[in-house]
Amino acid sequence: MTCLKSLPLAAAMLTLAGAAHAEWPTDRPIEMIVAFAPGGGTDIMLRTLAPYLEAELDAQFPVLNRPGAAGEITYTALSQSRPDGYTVSSLNTPGFLTMQIDRKLRFDPADLCPIARIVEDPGTFIVPASSEFQTLEDLVAFAKENPGAVSIGTTGVGTDEHMAMLQLERTAGIDLTAIPFGGANEAKTALLGGHITAIGLNVGEYATSDKNAMRALAQFAEERSVLAGDLPTAKEQGFDVIMSSERGLATRCEVPEDIRARMAEAVDAALANPEFQAQAKQQSLPLSFQSGADWQAAMPARLDRYRDIFALIKEGQ
């Protein structure tokens, strides 16, 4: 009896759910959670992108900052959201991958599916303009003769700069000293004051710095970045160092496949918009679209590489 009674109700609810589903994305605003404080690179990128996504999908994209724990607070919030396509978040590597190595996480990384990669920004090593080092080789040669004397400014243990430094140490057989700073700008100040030898920066950050004051030695990408076409990669100089940070968007894997596909299409279309490209160029965003599926497929290999590097950190301690 009860069964029979609730059947039509269930059917009605199903239709309702179906109707709500069909209305995506105009039912309500799509919340875009940014894992970093307002004003950071990821925040500005997504705030710049949001109006173009709004135009593509005819929906609203309010931005909400949930900074903390290198993104874990945001990823946890995303993994607890309803899988209806109305919540998306920023996704950053290497942070999203490295936190899976050394921490007990409060969310399951397998719950999060990337929608699209927007930017890939290779790392670089920067020296002051007055430095004697012209190439990465110069720096390596000096470090070989003076173990530990070359100090590299990083933004902490296990960050991209630190991992790039560890790779260089291993591949060149040298001993460098990592100096942790609170952020790239603090490190830059110490570099210009001549207190440290070099700092790690992303190409995007280097492109917006005063190039008369500092010089890049190498970029740590497979291929030269669009932002620095005349800067040789470390591989070209004979050192196997690959390190880049990627920024994109993600949502829950339980969000229906077709919605995720439409989101990715919208991102792709927004990135192709010449107006957006002009803005991205002014902000020195190294745009590099990759579909969510491709990005996700590339992640296990990256994760393995980072695991190897983290093993080096453990050895050092």
Binding site: A37, P38, G39, I44, G183, N185, K188, T189, L192, T208, S209, D210, A213, Q279, Q282, Q283, S284
Partner: peptide
């Protein structure tokens, strides 16, 4: 120098960069 001394100045740096000006 183009170096922000605090969070606020980092934000100002972004404001410059949006217009393609590198302080």
């Amino acid at each position: 120098l183009g170096i922000p001394s605090n969070n606020m100045m980092a934000m100002m740096l972004s404001a410059f960069m949006i217009h393609g000006i590198t302080p």
